[in-house]
């Protein structure tokens, strides 16, 4: 039972990360109908920004400022920086292709992902880098009930993810920007006819979605310590499927999908075998996509033929 709960917590942690990435996928897919393959790499860039913030403050062993401030700077810089990167990618790679056949931006997205990965490889090399979180955040704090340990970092990741998702829900459902985003997602041309600034709305969507991926990258660094330039692609794939499993375009769907995939992965690793984790998770994903392409919380689009 303890093992079960432990694995559940691991799954929730991993799932929170997937959910955050999935939200960005889902939002971008909503407004552009584009599967942004580069999104997973934005998560990787976020992880690197967090790493350099730690180094900048003196390294994990000898931080020159209090830990909460370091965390704040990491999240703000990773979120803001990756958000801007996402906006730039949209502006220069995807915007010229907005009216092209659907396959063109998809292939461009593959190119952007490849370019981003290899630029990072050129700049920072292929070696693994270590956040060394335990040097500045004590893993022994947290919740301990008998043999069950839930450390403070995991708690923070799960709580912060839920807060971010809640904030995003409010933005999308309650604010003017959110209404404009939904309008653009629903019918871009009609939105334009009402005077909605479509370019701005799409850029804002990219900013929000990419910022979430950047923050997820920092979280990944804090929880799993090791970061490397190729960490983004597979994480991005799984997150996209999380978005699909939950129902693309739906925020609660992305959360649910992310959590489910995280938990499934964690249980497969815990109860079956870590060698087969990816294989089994891929299998589950293929099965879900075949059985219910609109996702668990997705609506069948009202499509006119």
């Amino acid at each position: 039972m303890h093992f079960f709960i432990q694995e559940l917590v691991n799954g929730l942690t991993q799932g929170s990360l997937y959910a955050l990435i999935a939200l960005g996928y889902s939002m971008v897919y909503g407004v552009l109908k584009l599967l942004n393959f580069a999104h997973g790499d934005l998560y990787m860039v976020g992880a690197f920004i967090g790493y350099f913030v730690i180094q900048w403050f003196g390294g994990p062993m000898a931080l020159s400022v209090p830990v909460p401030l370091v965390l704040l700077v990491m999240f703000v810089l990773a979120g803001g920086g990756v958000g801007m990167l996402g906006v730039a990618i949209e502006r220069f790679a995807y915007r010229p292709l907005r009216d092209a056949p659907r396959i063109a931006p998809l292939i461009t997205a593959l190119g952007v992902a490849f370019l981003l990965e290899n630029t990072m490889l050129l700049l920072f090399g292929a070696s693994y880098r270590d956040y060394n979180t335990s040097a500045f955040i004590s893993f022994s704090t947290g919740i301990h009930i008998g043999p069950l340990n839930v450390d403070i970092v995991r708690i923070m990741v799960i709580v912060l993810s839920i807060v971010l998702m809640f904030a995003l829900t409010v933005i999308v459902n309650r604010t003017k920007l959110g209404r404009q985003m939904r309008a653009v997602a629903s019918d871009r041309e009609a939105a334009e006819m009402l005077g909605i600034n479509v370019d701005y709305t799409i850029a804002a969507t990219f900013f929000l979605g990419s910022a979430l991926a950047g923050i997820a990258g920092v979280m990944a660094g804090l929880v799993f310590n090791q970061i490397y330039t190729l960490m983004g692609f597979v994480a991005g794939l799984k997150a996209f499927t999380a978005a699909v499993v939950g129902g693309i375009g739906s925020i609660p769907g992305a959360m649910l999908g992310g959590m489910l995939i995280g938990i499934a992965e964690s249980f497969v690793t815990g109860y079956i075998s870590s060698t087969y984790t990816n294989l089994i998770v891929f299998g589950i994903l293929i099965a879900v996509m075949l059985a219910r392409p609109t996702g668990l919380l997705g609506r069948v689009p009202l499509q006119k033929v």
């Binding site: 309008a183 629903s186 009202l302």
Partner: peptide
């Protein structure tokens, strides 16, 4: 539009997944 032009597009082009009120609000965006 701010200067006083508005359009009722062909096939209406409503935002189907949003409420009537939200659709109207978007007219005054």
């Amino acid at each position: 539009i701010a200067n006083g032009v508005a359009i009722v597009p062909e096939n209406r082009r409503l935002f189907g997944t949003m409420t009537v009120r939200e659709n109207l609000e978007l007219g005054a965006v």
